[in-house]
């Protein structure tokens, strides 16, 4: 069997995609990228950029040596933490406690009279049926100016408002303490900035519907406290005062320095140390003294320092 024709055809296919370049292209397998470092022919490039670039670019042959990469197997880690489950609303808590299963209502309802599906709410909704009907039943005790359509509408609006309120309450309950703190801080900052003008915010333009700023009201204990309890709190304050005076008892100013050392010491150790070490502290002085003891030769030279330390003591005494 002569396969030379087949081999030739195969070779021709490869030669069609084989490219002669002055320097080889740079292959970055990691990025699946090939960069061509060869300089471009500036003449033809400036003459007609588009055609030059398309000539340079390699055409992909429909049956060229294309590699079909398998699907990547490495799982990239999740960038964000998993969302936390939403805290249950008040109704969800209640229904869980009572064992009420959730019923999903359809958006549409069957209207018997009109013989068609109508919206439960929204445009032409079933919940507006009562206020839009052309004839109304009046209760016996109705006032003269009772408007049944308006009453029905007010009733519906009230339900909507109640739901909105409950929703907000649920949202507030679902807030974490962190969120609550942040919100409080933002509100505090806002209040501060509001009152940070020359007029303490008095003449600033108010936004529509901006709530009036109310300060924190002082709260006092009720007038009628059980006398036993009142006595107990008073005695507690008294004992606290007693212990407080024992701790931070006033001392005459004259002997303050010696008092700081306790035990009625005449020497102000802190001051003497500072003077002896030349302001470098007791640790440095200790190290130096240790070195002195080990090397006798320098002990005489350091003797002067010790003399100065004794002078420091003397000064501490006189100042106290």
């Amino acid at each position: 069997m002569d396969v030379s024709a087949i081999i030739e055809a195969e070779a021709a296919k490869h030669s069609a995609i084989a490219v002669e370049k002055d320097s080889a292209v740079e292959i970055d397998a990691g990025l699946l990228t090939i960069t061509d470092p060869n300089p471009i022919d500036s003449q033809s490039y400036s003459a007609d950029k588009e055609t030059y670039l398309t000539e340079l670019a390699r055409e992909v042959f429909p049956d060229g040596p294309l590699a079909l990469l398998p699907k990547p197997t490495t799982q990239l880690p999740r960038a964000k933490p998993l969302p936390k489950p939403k805290p249950p609303t008040k109704w969800e808590q209640f229904s869980a406690a009572k064992g009420i299963s959730k019923k999903i209502k359809d958006r549409k309802l069957w209207d018997e009279e009109r013989q068609e599906w109508v919206n439960r709410w929204g445009v032409d909704g079933k919940n507006k049926e009562k206020e839009e009907q052309w004839i109304h039943e009046l209760p016996d005790n109705a006032d003269d100016d009772f408007n049944p359509a308006a009453a029905a509408r007010a009733e519906r609006k009230k339900r909507v408002a109640k739901n909105e309120k409950q929703k907000l309450a649920n949202m507030a309950r679902a807030q974490t303490s962190e969120q609550r703190e942040r919100k409080a801080e933002i509100e505090r900052t806002l209040l501060t900035t509001k009152s940070s003008t020359a007029s303490m915010g008095k003449f600033d333009k108010k936004l529509e519907g901006e709530p009036k700023v109310r300060g924190v009201k002082r709260k006092f204990a009720p007038n009628e406290i059980p006398s036993e309890q009142e006595k107990k709190t008073s005695l507690a304050i008294l004992s606290k005062l007693d212990s407080g005076t024992a701790k931070v008892g006033k001392k005459p100013k004259g002997d303050h320095a010696s008092g700081a050392e306790g035990d009625g010491a005449v020497l102000n150790v802190r001051k003497a140390l500072r003077h002896a070490s030349g302001g470098r502290g007791g640790a440095a002085l200790g190290r130096e003294l240790g070195r002195n003891n080990s090397s006798r030769g320098r002990a005489g030279a350091r003797g002067g320092r010790r003399g100065s330390s004794s002078r420091g003591k003397g000064r501490g005494k006189s100042s106290s």
Binding site: P222, N223, T233
Partner: peptide
Amino acid sequence: MRPLTEEEQAA
């Protein structure tokens, strides 16, 4: 008329 607060009582 009200009871004294803790600070007032201490004073």
